[in-house]
């Protein structure tokens, strides 16, 4: 059963002088529990696709359905709620908030969710950080962590709200091979043990081959 469906999706970036076609007629179905890699050269539209799937950007035309729910008519407020409940993001440059400590960074999605007490929030943070081997770093700030640790914190933040979909944009791009391997193992664990659907943009062929499916892009078009 498809959890992510894109039909005839186009994305055009317009400026006064120029029109750039970032995505052209993309049709895609990703099943529940699948681990999918998206590959292609720089500028081919991989990140744009991920942003559209993550409801961070809207397509110029076409339809995006997530969890069988059409998203094109969702208000900005509803989109925020949907992201909060169902989608977790892992970014290449981690995007941790430097002025918040590890615990507060991880708890960020819960801060925008109603009905969670401070105690419950703390318990969830502790649980997810323990799972990722970072419970001893709760009070540290991002600036005090290594790249691998930062990315593990970012993964903890992505999954603390228990989303069904995790979108990872080159999650190992800023890490050395050992740390990159660690991060990949965690993502596979989230996929296999938790049954989360993972869509990962990567340039790394060997990492991509370890996923269920590879979707290749070139100049905004899906070529494989």
């Amino acid at each position: 059963m498809a959890i992510i469906t894109l039909k005839d999706v186009n994305k055009v970036y317009r400026t006064k002088e120029i029109e750039t076609l970032a995505l052209e007629n993309v049709n895609l179905e990703i099943g529940k529990g699948e681990f999918v890699s998206i590959m292609g050269p720089s500028g081919c539209g991989k990140s744009t696709l991920l942003n559209i799937i993550g409801l961070l950007d809207v397509p110029t035309s076409g339809v995006v359905d997530l969890m069988n729910e059409p998203t094109e008519r969702m208000s900005d407020s509803r989109l925020s709620e949907f992201r909060n409940r169902n989608i977790g993001f892992v970014f290449q440059s981690f995007h941790l908030i430097p002025s918040l400590n590890v615990a507060d960074n991880v708890a960020l999605p819960l801060a925008y969710r109603n009905g969670i007490s401070a105690k419950e929030r703390h318990e969830k943070v502790e649980a997810v950080l323990t799972r990722l081997g970072l419970s001893h770093r709760m009070r540290h700030f991002p600036g005090q962590l290594s790249g691998g640790q930062c990315q593990r914190v970012a993964i903890a933040r992505a999954i603390i709200g228990d989303p069904q979909i995790v979108l990872a944009d080159e999650p190992t791009g800023n890490l050395d091979s050992k740390m990159g391997q660690e991060v990949m193992e965690i993502l596979h664990q989230l996929n296999k043990e938790d049954g989360r659907t993972i869509v990962m943009v990567t340039h790394n062929e060997s990492q991509a081959r370890m996923t269920d499916r590879i979707i290749r892009f070139f100049d905004g078009r899906q070529v494989e």
């Binding site: 961070l56 709620e81 992201r83 908030i97 969710r113």
Partner: peptide
């Protein structure tokens, strides 16, 4: 700006 983007990605509404 990036922090605001992160907050929006993880569910912050405009009014938040």
């Amino acid at each position: 700006v990036a922090e605001i983007g992160v907050r929006r990605a993880f569910g912050a509404k405009r009014r938040s």
